[in-house]
Computed example of a mutant assay.
Amino acid sequence: MPENKGLVLVVEDEPHIAELQRRYLAREGFGVHVEADGDGALTAVRRMRPVAIVLDIALPGMDGMEVCRRLREDGDWTPVVFVTARDEVTDRILGLELGADDYLTKPFSPHELVARVKSLLRRAAGPERETVRRVGRLALDTGRRTLRVDDCPVELTTTEFNLLAELMRHPGQVFSRDQLLARVWGYVGYRDTRMIDVYVSQLRAKLGDASPIRTVRGVGYGVADTGR
Rank of each mutant, 00 (worst) to 15 (best):
L7V: 09
L7P: 05
V8E: 04
E14M: 07
P15E: 05
H16P: 08
E19Q: 12
R22I: 03
Y24T: 11
Y24K: 10
A26E: 13
A26S: 14
R27A: 12
V32Q: 04
V34Q: 09
D37I: 00
D37N: 14
G38Y: 02
D39C: 11
R46P: 01
R47D: 13
R47C: 07
M48G: 03
R49P: 03
R49F: 08
P50W: 00
I53V: 15
A58I: 05
L59T: 00
P60I: 04
P60C: 01
R69M: 07
R69K: 14
R70S: 01
R70N: 02
L71C: 00
T78V: 15
V80M: 09
V81N: 05
F82D: 00
F82M: 08
V83D: 02
V83K: 05
A85N: 02
D87G: 06
E88Y: 12
T90R: 13
R92L: 13
I93W: 09
L94V: 11
G95S: 06
E97C: 06
E97N: 12
L98D: 04
L98V: 12
D101K: 01
D102R: 02
F108K: 06
P110N: 03
H111C: 05
L120Q: 01
L121D: 08
L121G: 08
A124R: 14
A125L: 12
E130H: 13
V135E: 10
L138K: 07
A139V: 10
T142Y: 03
G143K: 00
V149R: 07
D150T: 04
D150Y: 03
E155R: 12
N162E: 14
L163Y: 06
A165G: 07
E166L: 14
E166Q: 15
R169L: 11
P171C: 08
P171Q: 12
A182V: 09
V184Q: 07
Y190Q: 13
D192Q: 14
V198M: 06
V198Y: 03
L203C: 08
A205S: 14
L207P: 03
A210N: 09
S211I: 03
S211G: 04
T215H: 12
G220C: 07
G227R: 15
R228N: 12
